[in-house]
Design a protein around this nucleic acid. Structure first.
Lengths: 228, 228
DNA sequence: GAAAAACAAGAGCAGTGCTCTCGATGTGAG
DNA sequence: CTCACATCGAGAGCACTGCTCTTGTTTTTC
Protein backbone atom coordinates (compact mmCIF):
# COMPACT_ATOMS: atom_id res chain seq x y z
CA UNK A 1 0.00 0.00 0.00
CA UNK A 2 2.99 2.19 0.49
CA UNK A 3 3.74 1.54 -3.14
CA UNK A 4 0.18 2.35 -4.13
CA UNK A 5 0.33 5.53 -2.10
CA UNK A 6 3.57 6.38 -3.78
CA UNK A 7 2.13 5.90 -7.25
CA UNK A 8 -0.86 8.01 -6.31
CA UNK A 9 1.43 10.64 -4.89
CA UNK A 10 3.52 10.81 -8.03
CA UNK A 11 0.35 11.18 -10.04
CA UNK A 12 -0.88 13.93 -7.75
CA UNK A 13 2.43 15.74 -8.04
CA UNK A 14 2.37 15.46 -11.82
CA UNK A 15 -1.20 16.77 -11.86
CA UNK A 16 -0.18 19.69 -9.70
CA UNK A 17 2.82 20.39 -11.91
CA UNK A 18 0.65 20.47 -15.02
CA UNK A 19 -1.73 22.90 -13.35
CA UNK A 20 1.18 25.10 -12.28
CA UNK A 21 2.53 25.36 -15.80
CA UNK A 22 -0.98 25.85 -17.15
CA UNK A 23 -1.53 28.70 -14.70
CA UNK A 24 1.63 30.29 -16.01
CA UNK A 25 0.39 29.94 -19.56
CA UNK A 26 -2.92 31.46 -18.49
CA UNK A 27 -1.10 34.76 -18.22
CA UNK A 28 -0.20 34.90 -21.90
CA UNK A 29 -2.94 32.88 -23.57
CA UNK A 30 -5.92 33.40 -21.31
CA UNK A 31 -8.56 30.74 -21.26
CA UNK A 32 -7.55 29.35 -24.64
CA UNK A 33 -4.20 28.10 -23.47
CA UNK A 34 -2.34 25.50 -25.47
CA UNK A 35 -2.15 22.02 -24.01
CA UNK A 36 0.73 21.27 -26.36
CA UNK A 37 2.71 24.24 -25.10
CA UNK A 38 2.12 23.14 -21.53
CA UNK A 39 3.33 19.66 -22.44
CA UNK A 40 6.39 21.12 -24.16
CA UNK A 41 7.28 23.10 -21.07
CA UNK A 42 7.10 19.91 -19.07
CA UNK A 43 9.24 18.02 -21.58
CA UNK A 44 6.55 15.50 -22.31
CA UNK A 45 4.43 14.56 -25.30
CA UNK A 46 1.11 16.37 -25.61
CA UNK A 47 -0.71 13.07 -25.59
CA UNK A 48 0.73 12.25 -22.18
CA UNK A 49 -1.13 15.17 -20.62
CA UNK A 50 -4.38 13.45 -21.51
CA UNK A 51 -3.53 10.77 -18.95
CA UNK A 52 -4.13 13.44 -16.31
CA UNK A 53 -6.86 15.58 -17.83
CA UNK A 54 -9.35 14.11 -20.27
CA UNK A 55 -9.63 17.39 -22.14
CA UNK A 56 -8.59 21.00 -22.02
CA UNK A 57 -11.94 21.83 -20.48
CA UNK A 58 -11.26 19.43 -17.63
CA UNK A 59 -7.94 21.14 -17.01
CA UNK A 60 -9.75 24.48 -17.06
CA UNK A 61 -12.27 23.18 -14.55
CA UNK A 62 -9.45 22.20 -12.22
CA UNK A 63 -7.90 25.66 -12.58
CA UNK A 64 -11.27 27.29 -11.92
CA UNK A 65 -11.88 25.32 -8.75
CA UNK A 66 -8.35 26.07 -7.57
CA UNK A 67 -8.90 29.77 -8.24
CA UNK A 68 -12.16 29.87 -6.28
CA UNK A 69 -10.41 28.11 -3.43
CA UNK A 70 -7.41 30.40 -3.59
CA UNK A 71 -9.44 33.59 -3.33
CA UNK A 72 -11.61 31.97 -0.67
CA UNK A 73 -8.58 30.93 1.38
CA UNK A 74 -6.98 34.35 1.04
CA UNK A 75 -10.12 36.15 2.13
CA UNK A 76 -10.71 33.79 5.02
CA UNK A 77 -7.17 34.15 6.29
CA UNK A 78 -7.45 37.93 6.15
CA UNK A 79 -10.87 37.99 7.77
CA UNK A 80 -9.90 35.65 10.58
CA UNK A 81 -7.79 38.36 12.19
CA UNK A 82 -10.58 40.95 12.31
CA UNK A 83 -13.34 40.77 14.90
CA UNK A 84 -15.28 43.97 14.17
CA UNK A 85 -17.88 43.25 11.47
CA UNK A 86 -17.50 46.56 9.67
CA UNK A 87 -13.73 46.25 9.56
CA UNK A 88 -14.05 42.61 8.49
CA UNK A 89 -16.29 43.61 5.58
CA UNK A 90 -13.66 46.06 4.38
CA UNK A 91 -10.86 43.58 4.99
CA UNK A 92 -12.56 40.91 2.90
CA UNK A 93 -12.91 43.43 0.09
CA UNK A 94 -9.26 44.35 0.20
CA UNK A 95 -8.20 40.70 0.36
CA UNK A 96 -10.27 39.78 -2.68
CA UNK A 97 -9.05 42.81 -4.60
CA UNK A 98 -5.42 42.17 -3.78
CA UNK A 99 -5.66 38.50 -4.70
CA UNK A 100 -7.20 39.54 -8.02
CA UNK A 101 -4.44 42.09 -8.66
CA UNK A 102 -1.85 39.41 -7.98
CA UNK A 103 -3.63 36.79 -10.10
CA UNK A 104 -5.53 38.74 -12.72
CA UNK A 105 -5.87 35.84 -15.13
CA UNK A 106 -7.26 33.55 -12.50
CA UNK A 107 -9.74 36.27 -11.60
CA UNK A 108 -10.73 36.55 -15.25
CA UNK A 109 -11.20 32.81 -15.32
CA UNK A 110 -13.78 32.79 -12.54
CA UNK A 111 -15.42 36.23 -12.71
CA UNK A 112 -14.82 37.20 -16.33
CA UNK A 113 -16.67 36.13 -19.44
CA UNK A 114 -17.44 32.44 -19.48
CA UNK A 115 -15.15 30.36 -21.68
CA UNK A 116 -17.00 29.71 -24.94
CA UNK A 117 -18.36 26.21 -25.19
CA UNK A 118 -17.39 25.51 -21.61
CA UNK A 119 -20.09 24.42 -19.21
CA UNK A 120 -19.18 24.76 -15.56
CA UNK A 121 -19.69 21.38 -13.88
CA UNK A 122 -21.38 20.92 -10.52
CA UNK A 123 -18.02 20.79 -8.71
CA UNK A 124 -17.48 24.51 -9.17
CA UNK A 125 -20.68 25.66 -7.48
CA UNK A 126 -19.67 25.15 -3.87
CA UNK A 127 -16.24 26.84 -3.98
CA UNK A 128 -17.80 29.69 -5.95
CA UNK A 129 -20.00 30.68 -3.02
CA UNK A 130 -17.25 31.03 -0.44
CA UNK A 131 -16.69 34.79 -0.70
CA UNK A 132 -20.35 35.79 -0.55
CA UNK A 133 -20.81 33.33 2.29
CA UNK A 134 -18.10 35.18 4.18
CA UNK A 135 -19.90 38.48 3.62
CA UNK A 136 -23.09 36.81 4.80
CA UNK A 137 -21.19 35.69 7.89
CA UNK A 138 -20.19 39.26 8.61
CA UNK A 139 -23.80 40.39 8.38
CA UNK A 140 -24.99 37.53 10.60
CA UNK A 141 -22.39 38.38 13.24
CA UNK A 142 -23.27 42.05 13.08
CA UNK A 143 -26.93 41.23 13.53
CA UNK A 144 -26.31 38.96 16.49
CA UNK A 145 -24.02 41.44 18.19
CA UNK A 146 -26.49 44.25 17.66
CA UNK A 147 -24.26 46.18 15.27
CA UNK A 148 -27.04 46.19 12.70
CA UNK A 149 -30.27 47.48 14.17
CA UNK A 150 -32.15 49.18 11.37
CA UNK A 151 -33.73 46.30 9.45
CA UNK A 152 -36.10 47.43 6.70
CA UNK A 153 -39.07 45.42 5.49
CA UNK A 154 -38.45 42.66 2.96
CA UNK A 155 -38.50 44.08 -0.56
CA UNK A 156 -41.85 43.84 -2.28
CA UNK A 157 -42.01 41.70 -5.38
CA UNK A 158 -41.32 38.14 -6.37
CA UNK A 159 -37.56 38.55 -5.90
CA UNK A 160 -38.23 39.43 -2.27
CA UNK A 161 -39.55 35.92 -1.74
CA UNK A 162 -36.54 34.51 -3.55
CA UNK A 163 -34.29 36.49 -1.24
CA UNK A 164 -36.08 34.92 1.71
CA UNK A 165 -35.23 31.49 0.32
CA UNK A 166 -31.60 32.48 -0.10
CA UNK A 167 -31.69 33.72 3.49
CA UNK A 168 -31.85 30.11 4.64
CA UNK A 169 -28.41 29.54 3.16
CA UNK A 170 -27.17 32.68 4.84
CA UNK A 171 -28.48 31.75 8.26
CA UNK A 172 -32.10 31.81 9.27
CA UNK A 173 -31.81 34.97 11.32
CA UNK A 174 -30.92 37.16 8.35
CA UNK A 175 -33.92 39.05 6.96
CA UNK A 176 -34.50 39.19 3.23
CA UNK A 177 -33.69 42.86 2.86
CA UNK A 178 -30.25 42.29 4.35
CA UNK A 179 -29.69 39.32 2.08
CA UNK A 180 -30.41 41.62 -0.83
CA UNK A 181 -28.01 44.32 0.30
CA UNK A 182 -25.34 41.71 1.00
CA UNK A 183 -25.70 40.39 -2.52
CA UNK A 184 -25.54 44.00 -3.70
CA UNK A 185 -22.25 44.35 -1.86
CA UNK A 186 -20.85 41.17 -3.37
CA UNK A 187 -21.99 42.14 -6.86
CA UNK A 188 -20.41 45.55 -6.45
CA UNK A 189 -17.21 43.95 -5.14
CA UNK A 190 -16.95 41.80 -8.25
CA UNK A 191 -17.77 44.81 -10.42
CA UNK A 192 -15.19 47.03 -8.76
CA UNK A 193 -12.40 44.48 -9.05
CA UNK A 194 -13.31 43.63 -12.64
CA UNK A 195 -13.57 47.29 -13.56
CA UNK A 196 -10.08 47.92 -12.22
CA UNK A 197 -8.66 44.78 -13.80
CA UNK A 198 -10.38 44.96 -17.16
CA UNK A 199 -9.52 48.59 -17.80
CA UNK A 200 -12.82 50.33 -17.09
CA UNK A 201 -11.04 52.67 -14.66
CA UNK A 202 -8.37 53.75 -17.11
CA UNK A 203 -7.95 57.49 -17.56
CA UNK A 204 -9.94 58.21 -14.40
CA UNK A 205 -8.53 56.83 -11.15
CA UNK A 206 -4.90 55.97 -11.72
CA UNK A 207 -2.88 56.67 -8.59
CA UNK A 208 -5.07 55.81 -5.63
CA UNK A 209 -7.16 52.89 -6.77
CA UNK A 210 -6.87 51.25 -3.39
CA UNK A 211 -8.26 54.34 -1.71
CA UNK A 212 -11.10 54.60 -4.19
CA UNK A 213 -11.88 50.93 -3.70
CA UNK A 214 -11.99 51.26 0.06
CA UNK A 215 -14.23 54.29 -0.21
CA UNK A 216 -16.60 52.27 -2.37
CA UNK A 217 -16.47 49.32 0.01
CA UNK A 218 -17.50 51.66 2.84
CA UNK A 219 -20.43 52.88 0.76
CA UNK A 220 -21.52 49.32 0.10
CA UNK A 221 -21.13 48.46 3.78
CA UNK A 222 -23.33 51.41 4.69
CA UNK A 223 -26.10 49.88 2.57
CA UNK A 224 -26.12 46.74 4.70
CA UNK A 225 -26.22 48.93 7.77
CA UNK A 226 -22.56 48.68 8.72
CA UNK A 227 -20.45 51.70 9.62
CA UNK A 228 -17.48 52.60 11.71
CA UNK B 1 -16.95 59.69 -58.61
CA UNK B 2 -20.20 57.81 -58.71
CA UNK B 3 -18.12 54.80 -59.64
CA UNK B 4 -15.68 55.46 -56.85
CA UNK B 5 -18.52 55.89 -54.42
CA UNK B 6 -19.98 52.66 -55.67
CA UNK B 7 -16.77 50.74 -55.13
CA UNK B 8 -16.43 52.21 -51.66
CA UNK B 9 -20.03 51.36 -50.92
CA UNK B 10 -19.60 47.76 -51.98
CA UNK B 11 -16.57 47.53 -49.79
CA UNK B 12 -18.47 49.02 -46.87
CA UNK B 13 -21.31 46.59 -47.40
CA UNK B 14 -18.89 43.66 -47.52
CA UNK B 15 -17.25 44.88 -44.33
CA UNK B 16 -20.60 45.10 -42.64
CA UNK B 17 -21.54 41.63 -43.84
CA UNK B 18 -18.36 40.15 -42.44
CA UNK B 19 -19.03 41.80 -39.10
CA UNK B 20 -22.59 40.48 -39.10
CA UNK B 21 -21.51 36.91 -39.66
CA UNK B 22 -18.69 37.33 -37.14
CA UNK B 23 -21.20 38.58 -34.57
CA UNK B 24 -23.22 35.43 -35.17
CA UNK B 25 -20.15 33.30 -34.66
CA UNK B 26 -19.41 35.22 -31.47
CA UNK B 27 -22.35 33.39 -29.92
CA UNK B 28 -20.80 29.96 -30.31
CA UNK B 29 -17.07 30.64 -30.25
CA UNK B 30 -16.78 33.71 -28.08
CA UNK B 31 -13.81 35.95 -28.62
CA UNK B 32 -11.75 33.21 -30.28
CA UNK B 33 -13.97 33.01 -33.31
CA UNK B 34 -12.71 31.40 -36.48
CA UNK B 35 -11.99 33.68 -39.40
CA UNK B 36 -12.08 30.66 -41.68
CA UNK B 37 -15.56 29.71 -40.51
CA UNK B 38 -16.75 33.26 -41.09
CA UNK B 39 -15.29 33.16 -44.58
CA UNK B 40 -16.94 29.79 -45.22
CA UNK B 41 -20.33 31.17 -44.22
CA UNK B 42 -19.81 33.98 -46.69
CA UNK B 43 -18.77 31.58 -49.43
CA UNK B 44 -15.38 33.16 -49.83
CA UNK B 45 -11.80 32.09 -49.27
CA UNK B 46 -10.40 32.83 -45.83
CA UNK B 47 -7.62 34.85 -47.39
CA UNK B 48 -10.16 37.20 -48.94
CA UNK B 49 -11.33 38.34 -45.52
CA UNK B 50 -7.87 39.76 -44.94
CA UNK B 51 -8.61 42.34 -47.63
CA UNK B 52 -11.11 43.85 -45.16
CA UNK B 53 -9.52 43.18 -41.81
CA UNK B 54 -5.76 42.91 -41.47
CA UNK B 55 -6.08 40.40 -38.64
CA UNK B 56 -8.57 38.73 -36.37
CA UNK B 57 -7.75 41.32 -33.73
CA UNK B 58 -8.71 44.10 -36.09
CA UNK B 59 -12.05 42.41 -36.72
CA UNK B 60 -12.49 42.09 -32.96
CA UNK B 61 -11.73 45.78 -32.51
CA UNK B 62 -14.44 46.64 -35.01
CA UNK B 63 -16.91 44.40 -33.18
CA UNK B 64 -15.95 45.97 -29.86
CA UNK B 65 -16.49 49.51 -31.10
CA UNK B 66 -19.81 48.49 -32.64
CA UNK B 67 -20.86 46.91 -29.35
CA UNK B 68 -20.03 50.02 -27.33
CA UNK B 69 -21.98 52.10 -29.81
CA UNK B 70 -24.92 49.69 -29.79
CA UNK B 71 -25.33 49.75 -26.02
CA UNK B 72 -24.77 53.50 -26.04
CA UNK B 73 -27.42 54.04 -28.70
CA UNK B 74 -29.89 51.78 -26.93
CA UNK B 75 -29.43 53.54 -23.62
CA UNK B 76 -29.64 56.97 -25.19
CA UNK B 77 -32.83 56.14 -27.03
CA UNK B 78 -34.42 54.84 -23.84
CA UNK B 79 -33.24 57.77 -21.75
CA UNK B 80 -34.42 60.37 -24.24
CA UNK B 81 -38.04 59.68 -23.35
CA UNK B 82 -37.60 60.21 -19.62
CA UNK B 83 -37.34 63.68 -18.12
CA UNK B 84 -37.22 62.91 -14.40
CA UNK B 85 -33.58 62.25 -13.37
CA UNK B 86 -34.36 59.47 -10.94
CA UNK B 87 -36.52 57.65 -13.46
CA UNK B 88 -33.91 58.24 -16.14
CA UNK B 89 -31.22 56.66 -13.98
CA UNK B 90 -33.36 53.53 -13.58
CA UNK B 91 -34.29 53.55 -17.26
CA UNK B 92 -30.67 53.66 -18.37
CA UNK B 93 -29.97 50.68 -16.11
CA UNK B 94 -32.81 48.66 -17.57
CA UNK B 95 -31.81 49.58 -21.12
CA UNK B 96 -28.22 48.49 -20.57
CA UNK B 97 -29.31 45.27 -18.88
CA UNK B 98 -31.80 44.40 -21.58
CA UNK B 99 -29.32 45.07 -24.34
CA UNK B 100 -26.86 42.80 -22.57
CA UNK B 101 -29.45 40.04 -22.18
CA UNK B 102 -30.22 40.29 -25.88
CA UNK B 103 -26.53 40.40 -26.89
CA UNK B 104 -24.71 38.53 -24.16
CA UNK B 105 -21.65 37.79 -26.25
CA UNK B 106 -21.21 41.39 -27.25
CA UNK B 107 -21.49 42.33 -23.59
CA UNK B 108 -18.81 39.78 -22.75
CA UNK B 109 -16.67 41.28 -25.46
CA UNK B 110 -16.68 44.75 -23.94
CA UNK B 111 -17.20 44.19 -20.22
CA UNK B 112 -15.87 40.66 -19.77
CA UNK B 113 -12.31 39.45 -19.50
CA UNK B 114 -10.02 41.10 -22.00
CA UNK B 115 -9.15 38.96 -25.00
CA UNK B 116 -5.70 37.46 -24.38
CA UNK B 117 -2.97 39.16 -26.35
CA UNK B 118 -5.41 41.79 -27.50
CA UNK B 119 -4.59 45.42 -26.77
CA UNK B 120 -7.52 47.80 -27.09
CA UNK B 121 -6.56 50.57 -29.50
CA UNK B 122 -7.27 54.25 -28.90
CA UNK B 123 -10.43 54.11 -31.04
CA UNK B 124 -12.30 52.18 -28.38
CA UNK B 125 -11.86 54.70 -25.56
CA UNK B 126 -14.41 57.26 -26.60
CA UNK B 127 -17.35 54.91 -27.32
CA UNK B 128 -16.56 53.10 -24.07
CA UNK B 129 -17.41 56.16 -22.01
CA UNK B 130 -20.88 56.75 -23.40
CA UNK B 131 -22.91 54.94 -20.74
CA UNK B 132 -21.17 56.48 -17.74
CA UNK B 133 -21.39 59.84 -19.44
CA UNK B 134 -25.14 59.40 -19.61
CA UNK B 135 -25.25 58.65 -15.90
CA UNK B 136 -23.14 61.74 -15.33
CA UNK B 137 -25.66 63.69 -17.39
CA UNK B 138 -28.47 62.50 -15.15
CA UNK B 139 -26.58 63.67 -12.09
CA UNK B 140 -25.78 67.03 -13.67
CA UNK B 141 -29.43 67.58 -14.57
CA UNK B 142 -30.56 66.55 -11.11
CA UNK B 143 -28.10 69.00 -9.57
CA UNK B 144 -29.18 71.87 -11.79
CA UNK B 145 -32.86 71.23 -11.20
CA UNK B 146 -32.34 71.00 -7.47
CA UNK B 147 -33.27 67.34 -7.23
CA UNK B 148 -29.96 66.63 -5.53
CA UNK B 149 -29.42 68.89 -2.56
CA UNK B 150 -27.36 66.95 -0.06
CA UNK B 151 -23.82 67.20 -1.38
CA UNK B 152 -21.19 65.75 0.96
CA UNK B 153 -17.61 66.94 1.17
CA UNK B 154 -15.14 65.61 -1.41
CA UNK B 155 -13.67 62.32 -0.21
CA UNK B 156 -10.38 62.65 1.63
CA UNK B 157 -7.37 61.04 0.04
CA UNK B 158 -5.49 61.16 -3.21
CA UNK B 159 -8.37 59.57 -5.14
CA UNK B 160 -10.55 62.49 -4.07
CA UNK B 161 -8.32 64.79 -6.09
CA UNK B 162 -8.47 62.39 -9.00
CA UNK B 163 -12.26 62.44 -8.80
CA UNK B 164 -12.11 66.23 -9.00
CA UNK B 165 -10.16 65.91 -12.24
CA UNK B 166 -12.70 63.47 -13.62
CA UNK B 167 -15.40 65.95 -12.63
CA UNK B 168 -14.23 68.22 -15.41
CA UNK B 169 -15.25 65.57 -17.93
CA UNK B 170 -18.59 65.21 -16.17
CA UNK B 171 -19.35 68.90 -16.14
CA UNK B 172 -17.69 71.44 -13.94
CA UNK B 173 -20.64 71.82 -11.62
CA UNK B 174 -20.48 68.22 -10.39
CA UNK B 175 -18.67 67.92 -7.05
CA UNK B 176 -16.11 65.17 -6.54
CA UNK B 177 -18.20 63.16 -4.10
CA UNK B 178 -21.00 62.89 -6.64
CA UNK B 179 -18.54 61.87 -9.32
CA UNK B 180 -17.45 59.06 -7.03
CA UNK B 181 -20.95 57.84 -6.32
CA UNK B 182 -21.81 58.04 -10.01
CA UNK B 183 -18.83 55.86 -10.81
CA UNK B 184 -19.96 53.57 -8.03
CA UNK B 185 -23.32 53.32 -9.73
CA UNK B 186 -21.76 52.56 -13.10
CA UNK B 187 -19.42 49.98 -11.62
CA UNK B 188 -22.32 48.32 -9.85
CA UNK B 189 -24.36 48.40 -13.05
CA UNK B 190 -21.62 46.54 -14.90
CA UNK B 191 -21.24 44.15 -11.99
CA UNK B 192 -24.95 43.43 -11.78
CA UNK B 193 -25.32 42.76 -15.48
CA UNK B 194 -22.17 40.63 -15.58
CA UNK B 195 -23.23 38.70 -12.49
CA UNK B 196 -26.55 37.88 -14.10
CA UNK B 197 -25.00 37.01 -17.44
CA UNK B 198 -21.97 35.11 -16.23
CA UNK B 199 -23.89 32.89 -13.85
CA UNK B 200 -23.07 34.45 -10.48
CA UNK B 201 -26.80 34.70 -9.71
CA UNK B 202 -27.53 31.06 -10.42
CA UNK B 203 -29.35 29.15 -7.68
CA UNK B 204 -30.33 32.39 -5.96
CA UNK B 205 -32.51 34.79 -7.92
CA UNK B 206 -34.05 32.87 -10.80
CA UNK B 207 -37.56 34.16 -11.49
CA UNK B 208 -37.52 37.89 -10.88
CA UNK B 209 -34.09 39.03 -11.94
CA UNK B 210 -35.51 42.16 -13.46
CA UNK B 211 -37.14 43.10 -10.17
CA UNK B 212 -33.97 42.40 -8.23
CA UNK B 213 -31.99 44.47 -10.70
CA UNK B 214 -34.35 47.42 -10.42
CA UNK B 215 -34.24 47.23 -6.63
CA UNK B 216 -30.44 47.35 -6.81
CA UNK B 217 -30.53 50.24 -9.27
CA UNK B 218 -32.70 52.17 -6.80
CA UNK B 219 -30.19 51.49 -4.04
CA UNK B 220 -27.38 52.77 -6.22
CA UNK B 221 -29.42 55.82 -7.18
CA UNK B 222 -29.99 56.58 -3.51
CA UNK B 223 -26.21 56.75 -3.06
CA UNK B 224 -25.98 59.58 -5.57
CA UNK B 225 -28.83 61.34 -3.78
CA UNK B 226 -31.60 60.39 -6.18
CA UNK B 227 -34.94 59.01 -5.06
CA UNK B 228 -38.53 58.91 -6.18
C1' DG C 1 6.90 -14.80 -12.26
C1' DA C 2 2.73 -13.86 -15.03
C1' DA C 3 -1.39 -10.93 -15.83
C1' DA C 4 -3.13 -6.47 -15.71
C1' DA C 5 -3.11 -1.84 -15.31
C1' DA C 6 -0.94 2.61 -15.99
C1' DC C 7 1.97 5.25 -18.60
C1' DA C 8 4.65 7.87 -22.31
C1' DA C 9 5.59 8.64 -27.05
C1' DG C 10 4.65 9.13 -31.83
C1' DA C 11 1.85 9.43 -35.92
C1' DG C 12 -2.11 11.22 -37.71
C1' DC C 13 -6.65 13.96 -38.51
C1' DA C 14 -9.17 18.01 -38.99
C1' DG C 15 -9.03 22.45 -37.88
C1' DT C 16 -6.78 27.30 -36.98
C1' DG C 17 -4.41 32.33 -38.14
C1' DC C 18 -1.86 34.19 -41.42
C1' DT C 19 1.28 34.88 -45.74
C1' DC C 20 2.32 34.69 -50.44
C1' DT C 21 1.58 34.16 -55.11
C1' DC C 22 -1.21 34.30 -59.17
C1' DG C 23 -4.90 35.43 -62.15
C1' DA C 24 -9.15 38.31 -62.82
C1' DT C 25 -11.57 42.60 -62.54
C1' DG C 26 -12.68 47.15 -61.99
C1' DT C 27 -10.61 52.45 -61.90
C1' DG C 28 -8.60 56.67 -63.10
C1' DA C 29 -5.24 59.37 -65.92
C1' DG C 30 -3.50 60.39 -70.32
C1' DC D 1 -10.49 54.77 -75.44
C1' DT D 2 -6.58 52.64 -73.72
C1' DC D 3 -3.50 51.10 -70.65
C1' DA D 4 -1.15 51.06 -66.34
C1' DC D 5 -2.40 50.43 -61.69
C1' DA D 6 -4.75 49.41 -57.61
C1' DT D 7 -7.97 46.22 -55.84
C1' DC D 8 -9.74 41.86 -55.22
C1' DG D 9 -10.64 36.62 -54.75
C1' DA D 10 -8.74 32.05 -54.68
C1' DG D 11 -5.50 28.55 -53.63
C1' DA D 12 -1.40 26.59 -51.74
C1' DG D 13 1.36 26.43 -47.90
C1' DC D 14 3.46 27.06 -43.00
C1' DA D 15 3.37 26.35 -38.27
C1' DC D 16 0.28 25.68 -34.91
C1' DT D 17 -3.89 23.68 -32.22
C1' DG D 18 -7.06 19.79 -29.57
C1' DC D 19 -7.64 15.27 -29.62
C1' DT D 20 -7.42 10.05 -30.90
C1' DC D 21 -5.28 5.78 -31.71
C1' DT D 22 -1.62 2.63 -31.75
C1' DT D 23 2.69 0.89 -30.02
C1' DG D 24 5.94 -0.17 -26.76
C1' DT D 25 7.48 0.28 -21.94
C1' DT D 26 7.14 0.40 -17.03
C1' DT D 27 4.90 -0.50 -12.74
C1' DT D 28 1.56 -2.63 -9.80
C1' DT D 29 -1.09 -6.73 -8.42
C1' DC D 30 -2.07 -11.34 -7.81
Amino acid sequence: MSAANLRARVRAEMTEEIKDVARRHLATDGANLSLRAVARDLGMASSAVYRYFASRDELLTALIIDAYDAVGDTAERAAATVADPYQRWITIGHAVREWALASPHQWALIYGSPVPGYQAPQDTIMPATRVIMMLAGVVRDALESGRITDVPEPPAGRFGEELAVVAEHFGTAVPAHLVGTTMFGFIHLCGAVSAELFGQLNNTIEDDRRGFFEWQARLAASLVGLSA
